[in-house]
C-alpha cells in the first residue's frame, strides 16, 4: 500500500490481526520519505512483513516509471535501514524452490542446503548426479516476495491503465468501484503479467476495454474459492484475502480510489488448499 496513505490504510486492513506498532509506523513515515529520494522512486509502497523465528522482515517496494514492471524491493528489520533485495531470476526461483523448506529464520545470511539428484543425459543410461543446492535467506526472501506479487497481487479494475506506449500507470480518473460491483470478484485483477488473457476468444474479449482490461481477473483463478471476499468495518471496506497465500489482505473502499494490499504472514504458500475448501 502507498506509503503516503499508510496511516489510515493500516487501520483498514487490521481485521487480519497483525498490524504495525506505533513505533514502526512512525519509523516508516520517516524512512520511506528518505528512501524515495535516495533511490529516485516515483512512489514507495509498504509491501508487508514476513514473520521469521528470530526477527521479522519488513518489505518496501519502490516504483519507477512503469507501475507493474519497474519495481524494486527492499527489506529492513527496524523499519529504518533498508537493504535492496536481489532481483528474482528464473534460475534463482528454481534454486529456492529446491533448497528451502520451513519457516523463515530471520537471519538473511542463513544458508539453506539441500542435495538434489539430477539426471543428466537422456536415453537408456541416464547418469545420476547429486548436486548440492545452497541458497541464503536473502535470496529466498526476494523470490518469495516476487512470487507473492506474481500470484496474488490485487488491484481493482480500472485503477491502472496501459497507455499507448505500453507502460502501466495509475488511472487518475479512477473513482472506485460502486458498492454493488465491489462485491464481485471479477472486478479485481491480478497485478502481474496476464496468463489467460491471450487465450481468450474474440467473443470474450468483446466487452473488455483494452486500456484497463490488460490483466487477468481473480474470478478465473483455480481452484475456485481461493479468495475470500468480505465487507468489513461496518460493511464499509471491501476486504479480499488470499487463501493460497494466507496473510495477503487487500482492501478497497468502494466509491473512493483508495485500495492497496499488504502481506503479513510466514511467507509460506498454503499447499493444502484443496483439502481446506
Amino acid at each position: 500500500m502507498d506509503s503516503d496513505t499508510l496511516h489510515y490504510s493500516l487501520d483498514l486492513v487490521s481485521g487480519n490481526g497483525l498490524t504495525l506498532t506505533t513505533e514502526q509506523r512512525a519509523a516508516l513515515q520517516t524512512s520511506l520519505v528518505i528512501l524515495k529520494r535516495n533511490y529516485k522512486f516515483n512512489r514507495v509502497l509498504f509491501w508487508g512483513r514476513i514473520l521469521g523465528m528470530k526477527s521479522d522482515y519488513y518489505i518496501a517496494q519502490g516504483i519507477g516509471e512503469d507501475e507493474m514492471s519497474d519495481r524494486k524491493c527492499l527489506y529492513s528489520f527496524n523499519c529504518i535501514d533498508w537493504h535492496l533485495l536481489p532481483p528474482a531470476t528464473d534460475a534463482l526461483i528454481e534454486e529456492v524452490a529446491v533448497a528451502t523448506k520451513g519457516c523463515f529464520t530471520g537471519d538473511p545470511s542463513h544458508e539453506y542446503e539441500q542435495t538434489e539428484t539430477r539426471r543428466l543425459g537422456e536415453g537408456d543410461e541416464p547418469v545420476e548426479e547429486e548436486v548440492m543446492v545452497k541458497v541464503n535467506e536473502e535470496k529466498r526472501l526476494a523470490v518469495t516476495v516476487f512470487i507473492i506479487d506474481k500470484e496474488v497481487a490485487v488491484v481493482p479494475r480500472g485503477a491502472y491503465m496501459k497507455n499507448p506506449n505500453g507502460t502501466v500507470q495509475t488511472n487518475r480518473s479512477f473513482e472506485g468501484l460502486n458498492p454493488y460491483e465491489a462485491g464481485k470478484l471479477r472486478n479485481y485483477l491480478h497485478f502481474s503479467e496476464p496468463k489467460n488473457l491471450k487465450k481468450k476468444s474474440i467473443l470474450e474479449m468483446a466487452d473488455l476495454n483494452p486500456s484497463i482490461d490488460f490483466l487477468d481477473p481473480l474470478s478465473e483463478d483455480i481452484p475456485k474459492g481461493s479468495w475470500s471476499l468480505q465487507f468489513e468495518q461496518g460493511s464499509r471496506v471491501c476486504m479480499i484475502r488470499s487463501l493460497l497465500w494466507q496473510g495477503l489482505t487487500f482492501f478497497h473502499m468502494p466509491m473512493t480510489p483508495q485500495h492497496g494490499y499488504i502481506y503479513t504472514g510466514q511467507g509460506l504458500k498454503s499447499l493444502d488448499l484443496p483439502f481446506m475448501l
Binding site: 487501520d11 487490521s14 481485521g15 490481526g17 497483525l18 498490524t19 504495525l20 468495518q233
Partner: peptide, 15 residues
C-alpha cells in the same frame, strides 16, 4: 496488543 503489533483496529475493538 497494539504495542506488540497485534490488533483489529481501534474502532473494531471498541465495537
Amino acid at each position: 496488543f497494539e504495542q506488540v503489533g497485534v490488533g483489529l483496529g481501534r474502532e473494531e475493538t471498541q465495537r
